[in-house]
Amino acid sequence: MKLHGITVSVTVVQKLLKKHGYVKRQAQKKQTTKITNNRNQQFENLATITEEYELQGNSIIIMDTKKRNLLEINIAQ
């Protein structure tokens, strides 16, 4: 429209698009396609290793890497 010398506000364009059935698409979350057969075994292995370290008197640092706020570190002994 600008090429034809017509000035239209964003609001008007949005209303026209909506009126004619055009809507802004939302980003769609997709499930991961990677399937791990031994997922539970991985967690059991981590629990075993953690327990061994604790029995040896070592400190264990647990970090939640999915949080996007301040980093929180729990030190278990």
Rank of each mutant, 00 (worst) to 15 (best):
I35V: 15
K34R: 13
K24A: 03
V10I: 15
S59W: 07
K34H: 12
L46M: 12
A76G: 13
Q42L: 15
K67D: 00
Q42N: 11
E72C: 05
A47G: 02
K34E: 14
E54R: 15
K66W: 09
D64T: 01
L16W: 08
T48W: 07
I60M: 01
T48A: 10
T36I: 15
V12H: 09
N74I: 11
K66V: 06
K67L: 01
L3P: 02
S59L: 12
E72Y: 08
K30Y: 14
I49R: 09
I75V: 09
G21F: 03
Q14A: 11
T32E: 07
K29T: 14
G57M: 01
K18A: 10
L70T: 10
A27N: 08
R68A: 11
K2S: 10
V23K: 14
S9M: 01
R39H: 13
G21K: 01
Q56E: 14
V13K: 02
M1T: 05
Q14S: 12
R25Y: 07
K15T: 02
L3A: 14
E54T: 10
S59F: 09
E44L: 12
L70Y: 11
I35Q: 10
Y22C: 02
I62N: 03
A47R: 03
N37Y: 13
E44P: 01
H4A: 15
K66P: 04
Q14G: 07
E72D: 09
T65H: 05
E52A: 14
T65M: 06
K66S: 09
T36K: 11
Q41N: 02
I61W: 07
K19V: 02
I60T: 04
E72H: 02
G21V: 03
V10W: 12
V23W: 06
Q56T: 04
T11L: 11
I60R: 05
K67P: 05
K24Y: 02
R39F: 15
Q31C: 10
L3I: 11
F43L: 04
K2E: 08
L3F: 13
T50D: 02
I6S: 00
V8H: 03
T32N: 13
V8W: 03
I62V: 09
E52H: 08
K66N: 08
T32W: 05
I62L: 08
Q77V: 07
N58L: 08
L16Y: 07
Q26K: 13
H4Q: 15
A27H: 04
V10P: 05
T33I: 09
T7D: 14
K18S: 04
